[in-house]
Design a protein around this nucleic acid. Structure first.
Lengths: 145, 145
DNA sequence: TTTCACCTGCTTATAGTTCTCAATACTAGC
DNA sequence: GCTAGTATTGAGAACTATAAGCAGGTGAAA
């Protein structure tokens, strides 16, 4: 993991934003659960333990801000929520996700084997690819009988 | 295109549903705009021209029904809407989409070059893949300067 | 033609998210 | 350390896409 609270404080400062108690608490919640792809309500519930007066609007606002500043990225698993994960700054574009249809577990895949496909698309369709979004649905090793 | 009104009538009948005027109008709207990935509201507006008394609830209900019967499939372009496209019955799983970040155009890609990647994932992660969902974001040939 | 379950439109409800606004909290300059 | 001014916050209302409830309407099988 390449990102920490100090980095975020820097990023915010550069753009004229402050690292408030609430923003720090939200960042902590995401950092401490970086493998979990939390949705805003889950983040709200975690943050409320340390910061009981926080309002859910602040969570939404902060997530939007973090997204704008490329601190987190929004992912969509078609379950009716936006979910957020940290951006590891060395990554060009985001990794892929394996979503278990039985237990809902999300596994991150680091392989970047899409390059061949992307090159072919760029050549054949004249479409210049900036990012991709790849999800695989199926059954994880625990749920497979 | 391999699907038409008669096929749909058959599918509905088999499962004990009726092809009502409203359902036919919704199907027509999708058939006539099959490249457009309409959302429920767009479908509603098209259908209202022929069927002015239709309620939006009927559109939502019908789309859900068509989805359940594998007549259409729901796609998500992260723009806040569910969108629907016809299922061409020879396809195993759905094609990919190229989404232009400038003009919003959606191009369908027929290549199925993900098989290598899928095999590798199944082997390496013990994850048995049922379906995938692949979107590429970038700039189409018209929008590229 | 009658019957009866299916289907519809209307209205209300729900859920996730955003907006509004007055109150509060930082930060820079004294 | 104080003050002023701006960014930020919490509460609640508002919004948007979608779903549910219900009473009346419709259409296919008998």
């Amino acid at each position: 993991m390449d990102i920490n609270v100090k980095d975020v404080k820097e990023i915010l400062k550069e753009e004229g934003y402050k690292l408030t108690t609430q923003r720090k608490a939200i960042l902590d919640a995401i950092l401490e659960n970086h493998e979990k792809h939390l949705n805003p309500e889950e983040i709200y519930n975690i943050v409320k333990l340390k910061c009981p007066d926080i309002g859910i609007a602040t969570v939404y606002r902060t997530l939007q801000l973090f997204e704008k500043l490329n601190i987190v990225c929004r992912v969509n698993f078609d379950d009716g929520y936006n979910r957020y994960e940290l951006i590891y700054d060395t990554e060009q574009h985001q990794h892929h996700h394996l979503i278990c249809l039985n237990c809902g577990k999300v596994i991150e895949v680091k392989m970047d084997l899409l390059e061949t496909l992307e090159n072919e698309i760029e050549r054949e369709y004249g479409f210049s690819i900036v990012d991709h979004n790849v999800k695989f649905f199926g059954y994880c090793s625990d749920c497979e009988k």
